[in-house]
Amino acid sequence: MSISVALKALLTWLLILIMAVLNGGLREVVFNPVLGTTTSLVLSGILLSAVILILAYWMLPWMSPQGSNTYLYIGGAWLISTVAFEFAFGLWQGEALRALLEAYTFKDGNIWPIVLAVTLFAPWIGAKMRHYI
């Protein structure tokens, strides 16, 4: 993967990060009071997954990766960046490691592991949809 593709993939991930933060705010301010925690977590996870897929599809021509493995490398980089950010930010805020790890279960409607799988495969799925591979 070239430096240019890697930098563009990073910038795209930063856009995903911004959208994820906005999605979390929407969940806490709008969805939770109206729908409750369990339904809000499911809806928020589905919405974030859709946003990640749309951004991957939309940004692929700009990133212009070459080769089918590159799409998985980009998704892997996004996944690692997401998990690293989640743990670093959570620990910085004083969250217990146990609480952070709980997000990786399907407890009470949490579908975060599915969102992570979508993050990993979104560039590859976008490439398939665009007939790049």
Rank of each mutant, 00 (worst) to 15 (best):
M19F: 14
M19V: 14
M19C: 15
A20S: 13
A20I: 01
V21G: 05
V21D: 02
V21T: 11
N23D: 13
G24P: 08
G24Q: 07
L26E: 00
L26I: 13
E28W: 05
E28L: 05
E28S: 11
V30D: 03
L35I: 09
T37S: 15
T37I: 12
T38Y: 04
T38F: 01
T39S: 13
V42I: 15
V42S: 02
G45C: 10
I46T: 11
L47A: 15
L47G: 02
L47I: 13
L47K: 02
S49F: 00
S49V: 02
A50K: 00
A50Y: 07
I52R: 06
I52Y: 05
L55Y: 04
Y57F: 15
Y57V: 03
W58A: 12
M59G: 00
M59P: 01
L60C: 11
P61H: 11
P61N: 08
W62T: 13
M63V: 15
S64N: 15
Q66C: 07
Q66D: 13
G67C: 11
G67N: 06
G67V: 10
Y73V: 09
Y73E: 09
I74L: 14
G75D: 06
G75A: 05
G76N: 04
G76R: 03
A77L: 09
A77I: 07
W78Q: 12
L79V: 02
I80P: 03
S81D: 03
T82A: 12
V83L: 06
V83N: 03
A84E: 03
A84G: 03
A84H: 00
F85Q: 04
E86T: 03
G90V: 06
G90A: 10
L91H: 14
W92M: 10
Q93D: 08
G94C: 09
E95M: 13
E95Q: 12
A96M: 14
L97F: 15
L97G: 06
A99M: 02
L100M: 14
L100V: 07
E102Q: 11
A103D: 12
Y104D: 03
T105R: 14
F106V: 06
K107I: 05
D108N: 12
N110T: 09
N110F: 07
W112Y: 15
P113R: 08
A117F: 08
A117E: 01
